[in-house]
Amino acid sequence: MRYAIPKTAAEAASLLMEEAARVLAGGTDLLVQMKSGARSPEVIVDIKHLPGLRDISREDGGFRIGAAVSGAEMQEHADLVAAWPGVVEGVNLIGSTQIQGRATMAGNLCNGSPAADGVPAQIAAQAVVRIVGPKGERDCPVAEIPTGPGKISLGRGEFVASILLPARPERSGDAYLRFIPRTEMDIAVAGAAVNLVLAADGTVDQARVALGAVAPTAMLVEEAGAALVGTKLEQPALDALAKACEAACKPIDDKRGTVEFRTHVAGVLARRAARIAYVRAGGRA
């Protein structure tokens, strides 16, 4: 096994072309997987020293977040938290204080877990992922990255360099909630993210709802968003939202939760997250 610290993106991409190469960001998934024997990479490519990968920078009114930025660094960025509280709270739910010091949003995405807490809010936010590879750079909507449990759409030699959260219109807000049986240190049994933009009178103008842990990948539920548009989150709208979410669920039945439990709770969380996002957008609940 070899451990490499590339200094340029091109060098990283060429290392990643090697057999059984693996990106190392915070390592909070990778090292655990190596210890349990689930993964045995030959080359470990530490991306933390590449230029710009640990920066949060402003771009066209939005935020470009380097792939090696930790959850704790995101939490300390006041402007980012003000613009995208839901995305940041999703990432901050990961692990504990210690884990937050290392875990990255990009690592959370690239690990490919259907239950990843950082992903639904990124999908609801329409985040755009910048991918670097042997053929240069390309941008990709975040929703197209995960393709199944443990699987992502990146090609050989490619890695995520940064993720762009777009600029916010006025009166917008987002929120993410997950269900775990304990208060922390657990894997989401269901998760829901809601991103809203309100009209001047408080009516929902745009709504995107994404669910986690209830299907092979985190997913956008268009009908759920549509149920909120044109409403002020009155009870029938919230009920329609929950129904749409339940209809979209295709969860597994396992030790962490039954199908009926995951499905029901996804709807409950979506309702609750919608109310929080609404208030954050300046709406009066």
């Binding site: 049986p181 304990r182 208060t183 922390e184 240190m185 894997i187 030790k255 962490r256």
Partner: peptide
């Protein structure tokens, strides 16, 4: 202790064997 149909233990670790953490 969660046993599957196959009689194998499904949660031999602290992730799925849920001891209360301090914040619980």
């Amino acid at each position: 202790y969660i046993y599957g149909e196959d009689g194998l233990l499904q949660n031999p670790g602290f992730l799925d064997y849920r001891i209360p953490v301090a914040s619980d």
